[in-house]
Nucleic acid binder design. Structure first.
Lengths: 119, 119
DNA sequence: GCGCCTACTGCCCGGCCGGGCAGGGTGACG
DNA sequence: CGTCACCCTGCCCGGCCGGGCAGTAGGCGC
């Protein structure tokens, strides 16, 4: 039956115009169909990562943020970067402020949503 | 010039076979081209969310996990769900165990990578 | 009826987190 | 030369986290 071996693609796009454009581009591709609401998909097409949004981060802040996504403590971040835990904590505080986060868990989630980190 | 108004799509796919299949499907679509390494894209096509991976979570655990992604404390989770902070903490501990995470920040990152939550 | 699972609650403890405050050094720029 | 941004370090404090331990109750399958 038609569709059985189709590649199922789910769209997760915030911009309605972008979504319409994608529907037009991908709607007629043989072997590919778009997933319905709630349907399991083979892959997801999202504009989240491409947003390249979020605040400007310094190189050190990026390094600290990457380590935050691994669940590292301030002490572990300090050890990984060869700095003191106090300094690591200072950078984490700067990140919380720039990402408008209430804590490191919130910071990681915000950063992922903004496309600042890829999980 | 050709390509100027193209929709630029970046692939972030772990499976090589899947990537090849996508290249075959999308390579010939007019108005669409695939981003080069490091190039900024309009959207990202990823199999991360579609993996539907990760452990089986109970309904309550899913609720707690959603609240974790907002950076909520155990006390806040308890308040939001109408249960005690101790119970919220119990569910968080179960999540850390199921997601093989060292802490709530790690749990949120793991869950996002596995497609258990969408950030 | 029993065992298992889920959901719930409490307490204790050591370590960690985050805000606030103090301070210093270096390099780039006008 | 002064200023600014970035990076670094220390200390204090209250609150939070996570592991460990104890317990209860209800629903479901055998």
């Amino acid at each position: 039956m038609s569709g059985e071996d189709d590649f199922v693609l789910a769209l997760r796009v915030a911009d309605a115009g972008l979504e319409a454009r994608l529907l037009a581009l991908l709607g007629g591709v043989p072997g590919l169909r778009l997933a319905e609401e709630g349907e399991a998909a083979d892959a997801v097409l999202s504009d989240a990562d491409a947003r390249a949004g979020g605040p400007e981060l310094t190189p050190r802040e990026r390094e600290v943020l990457e380590l935050l996504t691994t669940g590292a403590s301030n002490r572990a971040i300090g050890a990984a970067l060869g700095i003191s835990a106090h300094t690591a904590k200072f950078h984490v505080a700067r990140l919380l402020d720039k990402l408008d986060a209430t804590g490191r868990t919130d910071a990681v989630a915000h950063a992922a949503r903004l496309g600042v980190v890829h999980l």
